[in-house]
Design a binder for these strands. Structure first.
Length: 1130
RNA sequence: AGAGAUGUGGCCAAGAUGGUUAAGGCAUUUGACUGAUACUCAAAAGAUCGUAGGUUCGAUUCCUAUCAUCUCUACCA
C-alpha cells in the first residue's frame, strides 16, 4: 500500500511558515544545505551588515528576499553558498541612541559616566536590536548564518581592519590633511553629515549679506580702478578671502555707475546675466534725463551703463587689492588675491564672482588648492597654522578691533549679546571704505548643531584621508567588469561617482568606533601605523623598555584603553595615538576580509582567489545585493578597499534594489504613519506571499509601491491555486493508491520508471513540454539575476496552463472509474509538474515550496532529499520540448476563447450544443496543427463539427496588408502609397500572389516585385456568419439551433439542475437515485431522446414521467421553460 | 546645486535591438462553468504610452528640450 499524500484542509500560509520553520530547525536543514555541498564549487555571497540602530522595516524584507533567492538558487544548482551574517555595530547612530537613553552628552563621557561604562552601554544597545533582526531573519525565511556572525566591534574584526589600514599606510595611501568640515563652536566638535541631517537641523535664518567691491590691480583687461563684485552671506569670512572665483565660460561685463553709499564713481565687474538682478531699485540705465555728469550723491536715481564684455577666462589671473588686510596668508602670500576659475560658479544668484575663503568653504578650499592660492592661515602662539577664527568661534587677535569677538551673535551667552553682530560691523566698515556695493538681509536655510541649536561653521580641521583619488582610474576600470543590476546604476550613479571621486575622509572624533592605529610624536614628525596585535604587542614591549613603563596590551581595542597606550619612536620619543576613530563605512567595506579575520586566520579563503589557486574561495563575492542608497555607501567602500588593497573587484555582480514606497508612491516614514510593519505583514499573509509579491510586482531595482491588496491577490492567485491543484491531485492519488510509478492494479512497466513522455496523451506531452520550456526560462532568469521575470513565468504557468487548462481538461481522467495506463499517465504528469514547480519556486517561496515538495515526496519517496532546499534545480529535458505541440494547443486555446466570445455575443450558453465552426485556413501547416486538436476544441466549446474553409470558397474575403519589416527598407518613402495599393488589392490579385508567389506592385511610377512574405494576408469576413478574430486566427460560428440541438441543450440543462439538487441534498457521489419529472410538452422529445443520457449522468436507475408532481422543485431550464422535478435516494 | 532613476488605461504593470490590433492582472460591468476546489472562468468597456519638437516611409521604442515625482551626494557665494 502506497503512503498517503497529505491532504490539507485550507491554505494558511502563516501556518505553513511555522511548520516549515520548526522542521528546518529540527532537521538543521540550513546547515545541511551547506554541508551537503562541501567540496563543491563556491558561490560567494557577502551579507551587508545592517546597522543595528534601527528596527527592521519592510524594505529590509525586499533586500533580504533578493539575497536569499539567489543564494538558495545557487545552492540548488549544486554550489556551496556560505552566508555569514554580520552586524554593523559602530558609529554615531549607536552613540546617539546611548546618549539619549542615558540622558547625557558627549562631554559627559569620562565625567558623569566612565568610558568603560559608555562602551558597555553601546554594546548592549547593539545587542538589543539584534534580537529583533534575528527574529525577522528567521520569520521571513532568510537563510544566513546567525550563529557565527561577524561583528565589527570584535577585536578580531578590528585587527583585520587595522591590517588593511596598515597596508594602505605602507602604500602611501593614508595622509593627514586639513579640510573644511561642519563644526559646532558652541559644542567644540566637528559634526558628521549624518548629524547635520537630523530633523530640524536646517533652519531658516536671516543673515546680513554683503556684495563687496574688490579693487583690481593694474592689468591689460580692465580699466584702472575697476572693482570685482562678489556676494557673501557670511561677511565674517571676508577677512579670510584669498581669491575670487569666476566661471571660465560665463560672460562678464564692466558696468559704470556710482557707489550708493559713498557716491563715488565706480566701474564694477559682474556676470552679464546678473546685471538686471543687481541693478534694481535706485539703479536705472543711463539716459538723457539721467546722466553720469549730472549725478549727485544722495539723489534718488543712480545711473549705470554696461561698458564692456569679457569671458570669465579673460579675467583669470588678474590680481586685486586685499579687501580687509588684517592678516596675510602664512604660505605663499604672493599667490593670493587673484582671480581663478571654478566650475561650481553659476549665475543663479550673487554676481557670478565667488568670494573665496579657503579656510571656511569646502569648494573654496578645493578650487584654491587647485589654483595654488593659499588659505588665510596664520601662525598662532604655539607656532601652528590656524585660521582667523578660533575653535570657540571668535576672531583671533590679528583681527584688530574685531579680535575676540564671536563671528556669530548666536555664540554669545545670554545677556552678553552685542547690539551689532560682527557681520553688521564689517558691513558698515566696508560701506565707509567704499568697498561695499550692496548690503542686504537675506533669508536662507542654514545648518544648525542639533545639540546646541546654534549655527554650524564650516571650519578647517585636521583629518586623516585615504588617497582614493590615486586609485580612481583603476576603480573605474574594475567597475566596468562588474555586472550591475540594473546596468544604469553601475554606469550612471556609481560610474559618475567614481569619475568625481574625492579623497576619503576617514576621521571621526567620537568614542565608539575603530580607533585609527596611528601613533605620532608630539611634533608629528615621526609616526607609526600598527597592522596587527602582534605588532602592537611588540611596540608596547619596546616602549616599556625604552620609557620604563609597565603597559599591557589593552583587553579592548576601543577608546579610551587604546589611547593610554604610549609607543616610542625610533629615536626614543614618546608617541601618542591620533585620537581619531575611522569612518564606520570603512568597517563595513572591510567585511570581505575582516569577517574571516584575514590574514590572521582563513588566509587561504581569500588568497586562493587572489593567486588563482584551487580550493575553497571566499572572495570576491559572486553576488551582493543592497538598496540603491548603498551605491555610494557600502558598494563604494567595498569597491574602494578591494581596488586599493588587492587590485581586485570585491564583487562580480550586484543587485541594487529600489525603495519600498507606500501604495501612493510616497516614502514610508514613521511620522506619516504609512510605514508597513514587516512582522505584521508576514504573519498576516505569510512570508512567501510577501516575498513573492515584492520580487515579482516590480523589478527589484524599480521602486515598489507596496499595496496590500495586490499582496493578497498574490496569495490567492498563485499559492491558492497551486494548493488547490495539489489537493485535487492528492485526493484522487490516495484513492487510486498512486505511488509515483504505479496505481493500484496498474504496475509500472519497470520498477521506478515513469511512463515515457512520448507514450502519454498529447495533452500530457503538451504540459510536459510547457513545463520544460518553463524550467529552461526560469533557470536562465535566475542565473541572470532576474527574479521578477522568473516568478512571473512560474505564476503564468500555474494559472493559465496547469490549473486552468491541463487540470480542467483532464479532470475526468482522475476520477473516472477504471485504472489504466492512461490514468497513471495523468497522475504522473501532474505529479511531475507539481514537483518541478516546487523546485522552481523554492528560491523565492521557500516555505510553501518545501511544504508542497515534502507533501509530494514523502508519499512517493522518489527523491532522497528531506527538503526542497537540499534538492537540485530541475534540468531541462530538451527532447520533451515540442514547440509544434505548444503552438497547436495555443491555437486550441485561442480558438476556444474565440468561440466562447461568439457564444457570449449571442447569449448562447455553453450547455447549448451548436452545429458547426468554420475556420478559414491560411496555410496547410495551420490546418494540420488545428486538426490534431480538433476534438479537444469541439468538446471544450460544445460544438459538433469544425469545418476548414480553404481560399476562394466565396465565404471568405481576404485582406492584404503590407509587411513593413520586409518592405520598409526596399520601398522607403513609397511606403505610404504602397500601403494603400496593397490594401486595395482585389481578391483576384491576392489569389494570384498566393498561387504564383509573385506580384508586381506599381507605385509612384515604379514597379516592385512582391512575394508572399511581403504581404500579410488575413481573412476578413464571412458573409452571414458571426465572426471573431484574434490576430491571424478567424473563427466563424454557426449559431442556428435546430430542434435536435435545442433538445440536447435542454437535456444538459436538466442534468445540471439535477446535479445541483443532488448536491444540495448532500447525496453521496455514488448514490443512485430515482428521477421523477413532471410531464411537459416541450420536454417530451427531450426525455424520449436523451433519457438514457440523463439517467447515466445523474446516476438515475429509473426515470418516471408523471402528469402532476406535488412535491419536488420547480426549476427553470431556459427562458420560458420550467419543470417540476423530484429525486429520491434509493 | 550636482548626479541618477522614473513617468504607459482608475490602480499595478509587460513592452532589449523602431513596423501592422500597446501584453497581463486588479478594480468596474455583464455573463458562464462546476459532483475536486475556489470571491473560479469568460466577455465587455477602458491608453493616441508625461509634454513639445526632431530624425524616419513609419517612433511607446532613437535624438533634443521641457515638466513632474523620487533617490543619493552636497550645502557652496
Amino acid at each position: 500500500m502506497a503512503k498517503k499524500f497529505k491532504e490539507h484542509k485550507t491554505l494558511d500560509l502563516a501556518e505553513v511558515d511555522k511548520q516549515m520553520l520548526a522542521y528546518w530547525e529540527a532537521n538543521q536543514v540550513f546547515k545541511r544545505s551547506m554541508e551537503e555541498r562541501e567540496g563543491a564549487p563556491s558561490f560567494v555571497f557577502f551579507e551587508g551588515p545592517p546597522s543595528a540602530n534601527g528596527k527592521p522595516g519592510i524594505h529590509h524584507v525586499l533586500a533580504r528576499s533578493i539575497k536569499d533567492t539567489f543564494c538558495r538558487y545557487q545552492t540548488m544548482k549544486g554550489k556551496l553558498v556560505r552566508r555569514k551574517a554580520g552586524w554593523d555595530t559602530h558609529g554615531l547612530p549607536i552613540e546617539l541612541a546611548v546618549e539619549k537613553k542615558l540622558g547625557i552628552t558627549k562631554e559627559d563621557i569620562g565625567k558623569k559616566i566612565s568610558v568603560d561604562e559608555y562602551n558597555q552601554e553601546c554594546r548592549k544597545t547593539v545587542m538589543m536590536y539584534q534580537d529583533l533582526w534575528n527574529n525577522l531573519t528567521t520569520k521571513m525565511g532568510y537563510w544566513v548564518d546567525l550563529d557565527e556572525p561577524y561583528i565589527t566591534y570584535n577585536n578580531n574584526y578590528i585587527e583585520s581592519v587595522w591590517w588593511l589600514l596598515n597596508k594602505l599606510y605602507k602604500d602611501n595611501m593614508l595622509y593627514k590633511g586639513y579640510t573644511i568640515q561642519p563644526y559646532s563652536p558652541a559644542a567644540g566638535t566637528g559634526l558628521s553629515s549624518h548629524e547635520l541631517n537630523q530633523p530640524g537641523c536646517y533652519q531658516e535664518v536671516t543673515d546680513t549679506t554683503v556684495t563687496a567691491q574688490f579693487k583690481a590691480k593694474a592689468n591689460d583687461v580692465l580699466p584702472e580702478g575697476a572693482f570685482f563684485l562678489a556676494w557673501t552671506t557670511t561677511p565674517w569670512t571676508l577677512p579670510s578671502n584669498t581669491a575670487l572665483t569666476v566661471g571660465a565660460k560665463i560672460t562678464y561685463v564692466l558696468v559704470r555707475t556710482f557707489n550708493q553709499y559713498t557716491g563715488e564713481p565706480i566701474q564694477v565687474v559682474l556676470a552679464k546675466d546678473l546685471v538686471k538682478k543687481q541693478f534694481t531699485g535706485k539703479y536705472k540705465p543711463v539716459s538723457e534725463e539721467l546722466t553720469f555728469e549730472a549725478y549727485e550723491h544722495g539723489q534718488k536715481k543712480i545711473p549705470y551703463q554696461v561698458e564692456q564684455e569679457f569671458l570669465g577666462a579673460d579675467l583669470v589671473g588678474i590680481k586685486y587689492e586685499q579687501l580687509l588686510p588684517y592678516a596675510q596668508p602664512y604660505e605663499t602670500p604672493e599667490q593670493a588675491f587673484r582671480v581663478i576659475a571654478g566650475n561650481f560658479v553659476t549665475t543663479e544668484d550673487g554676481t557670478g564672482i565667488v568670494h573665496t575663503a579657503p579656510t571656511f568653504g569646502a569648494d573654496d578650499a578645493f578650487v584654491a588648492k587647485a589654483a595654488g592660492v593659499p588659505p588665510m592661515l596664520v601662525k598662532n602662539e604655539d607656532g601652528d597654522l590656524v585660521p582667523l577664527v578660533d575653535l570657540q568661534g571668535k576672531f583671533r587677535p590679528e583681527m584688530g578691533e574685531f579680535g575676540g569677538r564671536y563671528v556669530k551673535n548666536e555664540y554669545y551667552g545670554k545677556g552678553d549679546v552685542p547690539e551689532k553682530s560682527t557681520d553688521v560691523d564689517l558691513a558698515i566698515k566696508l560701506k565707509i571704505e567704499n568697498k561695499a556695493f550692496k548690503v542686504e538681509k537675506y533669508k536662507h536655510n542654514y545648518p544648525h548643531c542639533w545639540r546646541t541649536d546654534k549655527p554650524v561653521l564650516y571650519y578647517p580641521l585636521d583629518s586623516w584621508f585615504v588617497r582614493a583619488t590615486a586609485a580612481k582610474e583603476r576603480m573605474i576600470e574594475l567597475n566596468k567588469t562588474i555586472n550591475w543590476k540594473p546596468r544604469s546604476t553601475g554606469e550612471g550613479r556609481f560610474g559618475g561617482w567614481l569619475e568625481n571621486l574625492q579623497d576619503w575622509n576617514l576621521s571621526r572624533s567620537r568614542f565608539w568606533g575603530i580607533p585609527l592605529p596611528i601613533w605620532r610624536t608630539e611634533d608629528g614628525k615621526q609616526e607609526k601605523c600598527i597592522g596587527s596585535l602582534a605588532d602592537l604587542q611588540a611596540e608596547i614591549d619596546k616602549a616599556n623598555a625604552a620609557l620604563g613603563l609597565d603597559q599591557k596590551m589593552p583587553k579592548d581595542l576601543h577608546r579610551p584603553y587604546i589611547d593610554d597606550v604610549v609607543l616610542v619612536s625610533e629615536n626614543g620619543e614618546r608617541m601618542q595615538r591620533e585620537t581619531d576613530l575611522i569612518d564606520v563605512w570603512f568597517d563595513s567595506g572591510s567585511m570581505p576580509y575582516a569577517q574571516w579575520h584575514y590574514p590572521f586566520e582563513n588566509k587561504e579563503l581569500i588568497d586562493n582567489a587572489l593567486n588563482n589557486v584551487d580550493g575553497e574561495r571566499a572572495y570576491p563575492a559572486d553576488f551582493i545585493a543592497e538598496g540603491v542608497d548603498q551605491t555610494r555607501g557600502w558598494f563604494y567602500t567595498l569597491h574602494a578597499i578591494g581596488t586599493m588593497c588587492f587590485d581586485s573587484v570585491a564583487y562580480k555582480a550586484v543587485v541594487s534594489n529600489g525603495l519600498v514606497l507606500d501604495k501612493n508612491g510616497e516614502k514610508m516614514s514613521k511620522s506619516k504613519g504609512n510605514a508597513v510593519d514587516p512582522f505584521a505583514t508576514i504573519s498576516k499573509y505569510g512570508a512567501d506571499a510577501t516575498r513573492w509579491y515584492m520580487l515579482t510586482n516590480a523589478q527589484p531595482w524599480d521602486n515598489l509601491k507596496f499595496n496590500e491588496e495586490v499582496l493578497d491577490e498574490t496569495r490567492r492567485k498563485l499559492f491558492g491555486k497551486l494548493f488547490n491543484v495539489y489537493n485535487f491531485f492528492a485526493q484522487y492519488a490516495n484513492v487510486d493508491e498512486f505511488d509515483g510509478y504505479s496505481l493500484k492494479g496498474v504496475p509500472a512497466k519497470a520498477a521506478g520508471e515513469f511512463i515515457p513522455v512520448e507514450d502519454r496523451l498529447e495533452i500530457d506531452r503538451w504540459i510536459m513540454s510547457k513545463l520544460n520550456t518553463l524550467v529552461k526560462a526560469v533557470d536562465a532568469d535566475f542565473s541572470n539575476y532576474e527574479p521578477t521575470s522568473a516568478g512571473r513565468k512560474v505564476a503564468e504557468f500555474v494559472d493559465s496552463h496547469l490549473s486552468n487548462w491541463y487540470v480542467r481538461l483532464n479532470r475526468h481522467r482522475f476520477w473516472k472509474g477504471e485504472r489504466d495506463a492512461n490514468k497513471l499517465a495523468a497522475f504522473q504528469t501532474l505529479y511531475q509538474c507539481l514537483e518541478t514547480l516546487t523546485k522552481l519556486m523554492a528560491p523565492i517561496a521557500p516555505f510553501f515550496s518545501d511544504f508542497l515538495y515534502q507533501s509530494l515526496n514523502n508519499a512517493t519517496g522518489m527523491e532522497k532529499h528531506e527538503s526542497v532546499h537540499l534538492a537540485f534545480f530541475p534540468t531541462v529535458a530538451e527532447n520533451v520540448i515540442d514547440s509544434d505541440l505548444e503552438q497547436r494547443v495555443d491555437y486550441a486555446q485561442r480558438i476556444c476563447s474565440l468561440v466562447h466570445s461568439l457564444r457570449r455575443r449571442d447569449s448562447i450558453r455553453v450547455r447549448q450544443p451548436l452545429q458547426k465552426i468554420l475556420l478559414p485556413v491560411l496555410d496547410a501547416q495551420f490546418q494540420k496543427q488545428v486538426e490534431s486538436v480538433e476534438s479537444l476544441i469541439l468538446s471544450e466549446v460544445n460544438v459538433k463539427e469544425l469545418e476548414y474553409v480553404l481560399d476562394a470558397s466565396g465565404l471568405l474575403s481576404k485582406q492584404a496588408k503590407p509587411n513593413f519589416k520586409t518592405l520598409g527598407r526596399r520601398l522607403g518613402k513609397h511606403m505610404k502609397a504602397a500601403k494603400a495599393a496593397i490594401e486595395n488589392m482585389s481578391q483576384q490579385e491576392i489569389l494570384q500572389l498566393e498561387r504564383t508567389n509573385a506580384f508586381k506592385l506599381e507605385v509612384d511610377g515604379a514597379t516592385f516585385d512582391l512575394t508572399q512574405e511581403d504581404v500579410i494576408i488575413s481573412s476578413d469576413d464571412i458573409e452571414g456568419w458571426t465572426v471573431a478574430k484574434d490576430r491571424e486566427i478567424t473563427v466563424a460560428l454557426d449559431v442556428n439551433i435546430s430542434n435536435d440541438l435545442y433538445q440536447e441543450g435542454l437535456a444538459r440543462e436538466l442534468v445540471n439542475r439535477i446535479q445541483t439538487m443532488r448536491k444540495d441534498k448532500n447525496f453521496e457521489i455514488t448514490d443512485r437515485i430515482t428521477l421523477i419529472v413532471e410531464k411537459q410538452a416541450v420536454l417530451q422529445d427531450t426525455v424520449q431522446h436523451f433519457g438514457d443520457y440523463i439517467c447515466k449522468e445523474v446516476l438515475a436507475t429509473n426515470l418516471e414521467v408523471v402528469e402532476a408532481l406535488e412535491l419536488g422543485e420547480k426549476v427553470e431550464l431556459v427562458d420560458d421553460v420550467s419543470v417540476r422535478l423530484a429525486i429520491e435516494k434509493q
